[in-house]
């Protein structure tokens, strides 16, 4: 990505910074004090609501806890068991990793493409935007499970369509271990509405002047997209990348409703969090589930950290 557009023409619109330095220093100090006021609600929430349960779960990860009273400290046993004595844990890791690596880029590409398309001067834009967002309204409705069966089942819509093209020997997509995860990836891509909306909002923040100036310079549509839109959008792209990655690592609902909570067939859709859920609420092994949760936190943290590390090379903040 080109970084040399860091100061596109037209951004230095406001009054150039003036004022003497001592004045600014006083403001800095005042701001520092003000920062805590701005953070106050969040800090109350963090210490009052969020942090306690998090620390509790960290403690539980070192215990054998069955939810109903039995609780004994077991050190690192849960963590050791995960890697040495649990093939389902390993398979859940692999399923989740595959899901993250395929569905996140696909979903983001779709979302970005559609957002760019729908940001253009197309008549009936509001209508299209709503239509593309519709699937994301469904949330975790059980209706999705039935829908997906109608589409990807043995005699579902997809196979009917492919059959009409003369193809035979079609798999039962939703109930074949090799394909079931694929249908969940499609489901995730299908609900690309959320990142799309965020992209759209990002596109609306790109100052019109930049385009005007570029047009005067004779840039074509692709040139404008590459030189103005993309760099200006990088903070939002970064946000979507990080958040969709976190979401994908924690994917739960899709498999929970479509496989009925089992992660089947043959654990082919057993997401990490679904297995964690089974451990916690079916097997009553909350200690183990907590250990899984904290391991996942570390993994997501590493991925997110990596994203932040690379961001300095490709994410451009106009305000900084």
């Amino acid at each position: 990505m080109s970084v040399n557009t860091a100061s596109p023409p037209g951004t230095t619109v406001a009054v150039p910074p003036t004022g003497d330095l001592p004045e600014r220093g006083r403001r800095r100090r005042k701001r520092r004090w003000a920062a805590w006021l701005f953070l106050l609600p969040w800090l109350v929430g963090l210490f009052g609501i969020t942090l306690g349960p998090m620390i509790a779960s960290l403690y539980l990860s070192f215990t054998d806890y069955n939810l109903l009273g039995r609780l004994s400290f077991v050190g690192f046993d849960n963590y050791v068991r995960m890697f040495t004595d649990d093939p389902r844990f390993v398979s859940a890791c692999l399923v989740t990793l595959k899901y993250v690596l395929i569905s996140v880029p696909l979903q983001l590409a779709f979302a970005l493409a559609l957002a760019t398309l729908l940001n253009r001067g197309l008549r009936g834009l509001a209508f299209y935007r709503s239509v593309y967002y519709l699937p994301s309204l469904l949330g975790s409705s059980v209706a999705i499970a039935l829908l997906w069966r109608q589409i990807f089942g043995g005699s579902g819509l997809v196979n009917t369509a492919l059959g009409a093209l003369g193809l035979t020997d079609l798999p039962n997509w939703i109930a074949t271990p090799e394909w079931a995860l694929g249908t969940l990836i499609v489901l995730n891509v299908w609900t690309f509405g959320s990142p799309m909306i965020i992209f759209l909002a990002g596109l609306r923040q790109v100052p019109q002047e930049l385009y005007d100036a570029a047009s005067v310079d004779g840039a074509n549509a692709w040139g404008r997209f590459r030189r103005i839109t993309m760099p200006m959008l990088t903070p939002v792209i970064f946000f979507n990348l990080v958040l969709q990655m976190i979401n994908a690592f924690q994917a739960f609902t899709q498999s929970y409703i479509i496989s009925g909570g089992s992660g089947g067939p043959v654990d082919s859709t057993l997401f990490y969090t679904l297995y964690l859920y089974q451990k916690a609420f079916t097997d009553f092994d909350m200690g183990y589930a907590s250990a899984m949760a904290w391991f996942l936190l570390v993994v997501i943290g590493l991925f997110t950290g990596a994203a932040f590390f690379t961001s300095r090379y490709w994410v451009h903040y106009d305000g900084e």
Partner: peptide, 15 residues
Amino acid sequence: PADSQSEANGAGWSG
């Protein structure tokens, strides 16, 4: 076959 049965099980009694 396993896939048909498993799909039917997910569809509830109507299926």
